[in-house]
Simulated scan of single mutants.
Amino acid sequence: MKMIQMTAFILATAFVAPVFAQTATPNIDKRQARQQERIAKGISNGELTAKESANLEKREAKIEANKEAAAADGVVTKQERAKLEHQENVASKRIYTKKHNARKVETSQ
């Protein structure tokens, strides 16, 4: 009886583990975290105005929603990953542009 249960468990995990691997997006998750840090630093040192940071945060939220939608069916395809990476590339460029424009928030010293 134990042998049958053990075999069933092994077979179940053999089929379930790849599904989890296909929905995981570790590179995108790490990149989102790094971009959130860049936005936070831009806010704290005055490089980003409130409006700029709100727009950047809104874009990051949209990418997160797209990522969740891609994973909703249990598989994140190569095409979905490529689309998410493209969206992250665009967002990264926008963060850089907004942080390096002439608009600054005056911080009191």
Score class of each variant (00 low, 15 high):
Met1Gly: 15
Met1Lys: 05
Lys2Cys: 06
Ile4Glu: 14
Gln5Gly: 03
Gln5Asn: 07
Met6Lys: 05
Thr7Ile: 09
Ala8His: 00
Ala8Leu: 13
Ile10Glu: 10
Ile10Trp: 08
Ala12Thr: 11
Ala12Phe: 09
Ala12Val: 08
Val16Ser: 08
Ala17Arg: 11
Ala17Gln: 11
Pro18Asp: 05
Pro18Ser: 02
Val19Arg: 14
Ala21Asp: 08
Thr23His: 04
Pro26Arg: 04
Asn27Asp: 12
Ile28Gln: 03
Lys30Ser: 15
Arg31Asn: 06
Arg31Val: 02
Gln32Arg: 08
Gln32Ile: 09
Ala33His: 06
Arg34Ala: 14
Gln35Val: 00
Gln35Leu: 11
Gln36Val: 02
Gln36Met: 12
Arg38His: 10
Ile39Lys: 08
Ile39Leu: 02
Ile39Tyr: 06
Ala40Lys: 07
Lys41Gly: 09
Lys41Thr: 10
Gly42His: 00
Gly46Asp: 03
Glu47Pro: 01
Glu47Gln: 11
Thr49Gln: 03
Thr49Arg: 05
Ala50Trp: 02
Ala50Thr: 15
Lys51Leu: 14
Ser53Leu: 04
Ala54Val: 05
Ala54Trp: 12
Ala54Gln: 11
Asn55Glu: 15
Asn55Gly: 15
Glu57Ile: 14
Glu57Phe: 01
Lys58Ile: 00
Arg59Tyr: 02
Arg59Thr: 10
Glu60Ala: 15
Ala61Met: 03
Lys62Arg: 08
Glu64Phe: 06
Ala65Arg: 10
Ala65Asn: 11
Lys67Met: 08
Lys67Glu: 13
Lys67Ile: 08
Glu68Ser: 00
Ala70Val: 13
Ala70Lys: 07
Ala72Leu: 07
Asp73Cys: 04
Val75Glu: 13
Val75Cys: 10
Val76Gln: 01
Thr77Glu: 09
Glu80Ala: 03
Arg81Ala: 11
Arg81Asp: 12
Ala82Trp: 01
Lys83Tyr: 01
Lys83Phe: 08
Leu84Cys: 12
His86Asp: 10
Glu88Thr: 00
Glu88Arg: 03
Asn89Cys: 04
Asn89Glu: 02
Asn89Val: 01
Ser92Gln: 07
Lys93Cys: 00
Lys93Ile: 01
Arg94Asn: 10
Ile95Ser: 09
Ile95Cys: 03
Thr97Pro: 04
Thr97Lys: 10
Lys98Gly: 04
Lys98Glu: 14
Lys99Pro: 05
Lys99Met: 10
Ala102Thr: 06
Ala102Ser: 13
Arg103Val: 12
Arg103Pro: 04
Lys104Leu: 10
Lys104Glu: 15
Lys104Arg: 13
Val105Pro: 11
Glu106Met: 11
Thr107Lys: 15
Gln109Met: 12
